[in-house]
Simulated assay, not measured.
Amino acid sequence: MLDDRFETHSSRMVDREGVWDRHSNLYAWTSVLGERRGSPDVSQYAAPARAEDLCRLPRTYIDTGSAEGFRDEILIYAGRLSEAGVSVDFHMWGGGFHGFDMSVGDAAVSRASNATREEFIRRALDR
């Protein structure tokens, strides 16, 4: 969860029980922020997409599924990190929905996603 404003297409596109959809997202942001959700009074520490300066952030791994409700905000944030000079390992997994890598862990895309994430962590810790 990076952005509480629901301005992207993907934040509104998923409307299906059984997966994290726009209703789940709205509930979660409202639980965290209350009436401040979507207002100008939200801290970048609660909603990282609101940060103006990303240049001092560490190397980042960020991934998303192509059918993920957070997809567009993740794409935007990864792009902003890269523009700020942050080293970004970004991956979009075709057909992936929110939590696909945990809920269908035996699927080929889930195995690839998990292996890629684990390899990034290994490389990051091997200094």
Rank of each mutant, 00 (worst) to 15 (best):
G34S: 06
G34P: 03
G34E: 08
E35H: 10
E35Q: 14
E35V: 12
E35S: 14
R36N: 00
R36F: 02
R36Q: 02
R37N: 04
R37Q: 15
R37G: 06
R37L: 11
R37D: 00
G38A: 07
S39N: 03
P40V: 11
D41R: 13
D41N: 13
V42W: 05
V42A: 02
S43H: 08
S43Y: 08
S43G: 02
Q44I: 13
Q44P: 14
Q44S: 13
Y45T: 10
Y45A: 09
Y45N: 11
A47Y: 12
A47C: 03
P48H: 12
A49W: 06
A49P: 02
A49L: 14
R50H: 13
R50M: 11
A51E: 14
A51D: 03
A51N: 01
A51P: 05
E52D: 12
E52H: 14
E52F: 08
E52N: 12
D53Q: 00
L54W: 07
L54I: 11
R56N: 15
R56Q: 15
R56D: 14
R56I: 07
L57F: 15
P58Y: 05
R59T: 15
R59P: 14
R59E: 15
T60E: 07
Y61V: 04
Y61P: 05
I62D: 03
T64D: 08
T64M: 09
T64Y: 05
G65F: 12
S66E: 07
A67Y: 09
A67D: 08
E68C: 03
E68Q: 01
E68F: 01
E68G: 04
G69T: 11
G69M: 14
G69L: 15
F70D: 04
R71D: 01
D72C: 09
E73F: 00
E73S: 01
I74W: 00
I74Y: 06
L75N: 12
L75Q: 10
L75D: 11
I76E: 14
Y77E: 02
A78F: 12
A78C: 10
G79T: 08
R80S: 05
R80I: 11
R80A: 01
L81E: 01
E83N: 08
E83A: 15
A84F: 08
A84D: 00
A84Q: 06
A84N: 02
A84T: 07
G85L: 09
V86F: 09
S87N: 09
S87P: 04
S87L: 07
V88H: 09
D89G: 05
F90T: 06
H91R: 15
M92K: 07
M92E: 15
M92W: 05
W93E: 01
W93G: 05
W93F: 13
G95P: 03
G95M: 05
G96I: 02
G96H: 03
G96T: 08
F97W: 12
F97I: 09
F97L: 07
H98L: 09
H98E: 02
H98Y: 07
G99M: 00
G99W: 04
F100I: 00
F100T: 02
D101L: 10
M102R: 11
S103Q: 09
V104S: 10
V104E: 14
V104D: 06
V104N: 06
G105M: 13
D106M: 11
D106C: 04
D106R: 15
A108M: 02
A108P: 10
A108Q: 07
V109H: 00
V109F: 02
R111A: 10
